[in-house]
Write a protein that binds this DNA or RNA. Structure first.
Lengths: 207, 207
DNA sequence: GTCTATATCAGGATAGAC
DNA sequence: GTCTATCCTGATATAGAC
């Protein structure tokens, strides 16, 4: 079926190819922003990577800011960060699995770490994204910890809200140290250590 | 005693005034880098704050990079981060006290958080500073936790090295969240929660 | 020590030809 | 959709007068 066959309601032009190009650009932008941050990375860098002129790049994303937002959205897709709470997997397994996965994609971790802190500065385009992300994540983890508490599997003197906040903080902090000293810092080890402290093992069945 | 009285070996010129000016500049630079990061903050911003032309500023610090390094060194002085291990104060008290103090100087926390993550990017002038800082801090805390362990005051299944790495990570991560949501995140609460998990109370004397 | 003037460069974004 | 050419802005840094 060619374009001509479709009739008047059809989309014209090589839409699929354009979408692919957009993805290519996003990958390149991802790399550039991860390596140099938002302010430090230039549109020219991205354009060079994808073999396009800087102006052609702006044909796909009308501004640098738009490009960043698209990169952040894409990050959510890659990492599944827009976190479906309905999964059957337990909190501990889910976190550890993701942390293990992240070891293979340091670029994604770097992007996240750099942009997160950069967004703390004045009027950064990513600020809303990270603020909302933290809020969502804290809520989500707090609910998970509360579930564990209901099952008697959370150490009794642990507040689920504090645990949620701390888990997010610990994870991010470990990743930062890992990026600066990958041979000395083990993110998964640190997370396991924390879970061992707050999560009790499954209760053994009554004899 | 005036300069004339000192004889030929004396320093000439208003040395003290110059030193004061340098401190003023460092304070301004601190604010600017905290608010906009190293790349985002400009020498002009700093110059404006201190009421000097941009070129005059470069008279005191020959390059932007030099200015940043001086700001980081000054940060160590302010926070006492070059951590004298010889203090009598216990690890827990020391950390909590510093965290409480930090609540009053969000600018310093912001500078630290922003520059730390920015330094993860390629060839950032602050990279060495933060890498070394983390290494030093992990070592220092690990020794403190080991001391606690020797006193039987560390939970037995906790590795001092993991605890040190985790404490640093947790602290930094909490500060980041606090900067983005100061009303919802309590750094001290998070740290206390962690210490409650790993540090045991002083053993009661034998009956 | 402080300034003006300027060199030099790079960034993002627009206009318009093809 | 892609390019060249260009605009505009703002950055660091230097030269040299006062």
């Amino acid at each position: 079926m060619t374009t001509k066959d479709v009739g008047r309601a059809a989309r014209r032009g090589p839409y699929a190819k354009s979408e692919e190009r957009r993805r290519t650009i996003l990958d390149a932008a991802h790399e550039v922003f991860a390596a140099h941050g938002y302010r430090g990375g230039s549109l020219q860098d991205v354009a060079d990577k994808v073999g396009l002129s800087q102006t052609s790049l702006l044909h796909y994303f009308p501004s640098k800011r738009d490009l960043l937002m698209a990169v952040l959205e894409r990050r959510d897709e890659i990492t599944g960060d827009a976190f479906p709470d309905d999964m059957e997997e337990g909190l501990v397994d889910s976190v550890i699995r993701t942390a293990l996965f992240n070891e293979n994609i340091p670029g994604v971790v770097e992007l996240y770490t750099v942009l997160c802190a950069e967004s703390v500065t004045d009027s950064h385009p990513g600020r809303v994204y990270f603020t909302e992300r933290f809020e969502r994540l804290r809520k989500s983890y707090a609910r998970r910890f509360a579930e564990l508490a209901a099952q008697g599997r959370l150490r009794s003197d642990v507040d689920p809200d504090v645990a949620a906040m701390s888990l997010v903080a610990l994870w991010d902090g470990l990743q930062t140290q890992w990026l600066l000293a990958p041979d000395e810092v083990d993110v998964v080890k640190g997370l396991r250590g924390y879970f061992d402290l707050v999560v009790l093992p499954e209760p053994s069945p009554d004899p």
